[in-house]
């Protein structure tokens, strides 16, 4: 479990992380979502004790990171940038980390095989592709068989096969009862892997909810219709207590109503319909809207009306 308590990081006057309070629960994949520059990486670095919080607190299993003895046995992390000496072989790189935390040497070939780098164990990462670099990073995260795993933008720059592999790995780790905390700026990516969501924008907490709740609350379903007599249609809808929104291409969008009901209404009043289609706003849109509001909030000082 990871607990953040009013975690704050300021660089001069810039606030990167702003009073972030949340808990990352074990046994599920928690998505850490936010646009680029929202403070995700900074938050993760503070969790690992790499960056010092300006204020607030973060605890891993109830302890500060630098109080953990052999931390790689508690938490394994893949950070965004490569954290590997290009001249030290993959095998030696992992050996260095294993030795520092008293992890048995036999784990090194084990994790290398697990991430599919067994054949390049004695090669220097200098010549590794981005995907191989990511796999080596994941191998070092898994080295101590920790209960908590943290991945910062793990699918960045990966080929489809690599992305598929990472998704399955994360699901597998969560099914083993591990805490999996993964950051991304892509909602679509999260929708496939995460069960729980923590959304931040400009360093502030925007949502801390289950994926199911998030979808329910944020995915707007509506019906789109086109008619040659939009004015009369509006009146009919108004009488029925519905408020349509006109779109740029002359169609109408009606929220919270079944398409059946709209078809019946049109028939009752003898209105011609050229189109009647139920729509679902994508999660990506919901996410964009959520974070756009955060941006607007900071830019104009008003939280409403977006």
């Amino acid at each position: 479990m990871i607990e953040l308590d009013r975690l704050t990081k300021r660089y001069g006057t810039t606030v990167a992380v702003d009073q972030l309070t949340c808990t990352v629960q074990p046994g599920v994949v928690t998505g850490f979502l936010g646009p680029n520059g929202a403070g995700k990486s900074t938050t993760m670095r503070m969790m690992l004790g790499l960056d010092r919080p300006t204020a607030g607190d973060v605890r891993i299993d109830g302890e500060h990171y630098d109080r953990l003895r052999d931390p790689l046995n508690h938490i394994g992390a893949l950070l965004e940038a490569k954290a590997v000496h290009p001249g030290r072989t993959a095998y030696n790189h992992l050996t260095v980390l294993a030795q520092s935390n008293g992890i048995p040497q036999k784990r090194v070939p084990e994790v290398l095989d697990l991430v599919g780098l067994g054949s390049v164990a004695k090669k220097r990462p200098k010549g590794f592709s981005l995907g191989m670099g990511q796999r080596l990073g994941i191998a070092s995260a898994l080295l101590g068989d920790p209960k908590i795993l943290m991945f910062d933008e793990p699918v960045n720059g990966l080929d489809p096969e690599g992305i598929h592999w990472i998704r399955n790995l994360m699901k597998y780790l969560a099914s083993e009862g591990k805490t999996v905390f993964v950051s991304s700026h892509l909602m679509s990516e999260m929708a496939l892997t995460a069960e729980h969501l923590i959304v931040i924008g400009r360093g502030r907490l925007l949502a801390d909810t289950s994926m199911r709740e998030f979808i329910k609350e944020n995915s707007r379903s509506y019906v789109r219709l086109r008619t040659p007599e939009p004015e009369r249609m509006r009146d009919v809808l108004a009488t029925a207590g519905l408020t349509p929104v006109a779109t740029e291409d002359g169609a109408l969008e009606v929220d919270s109503v079944e398409s059946d009901r709209l078809g019946e209404l049109a028939a009752e009043h003898g209105l011609v319909l050229h189109e009647l289609s139920p729509q679902q706003a994508s999660l990506e849109e919901a996410f964009m809207q959520l974070t756009a509001e955060a941006v607007q909030y900071h830019a104009h000082g008003t939280g409403k009306g977006a």
């Binding site: 690992l48 790689l72 950070l79 520092s100």
Partner: peptide, 15 residues
């Protein structure tokens, strides 16, 4: 220069 410092300090946070 290599970024190894992050792996090193994550492994040994007692600086």
């Amino acid at each position: 220069s290599t970024g190894m410092i992050r792996a090193s300090l994550a492994a040994v946070p007692q600086r």
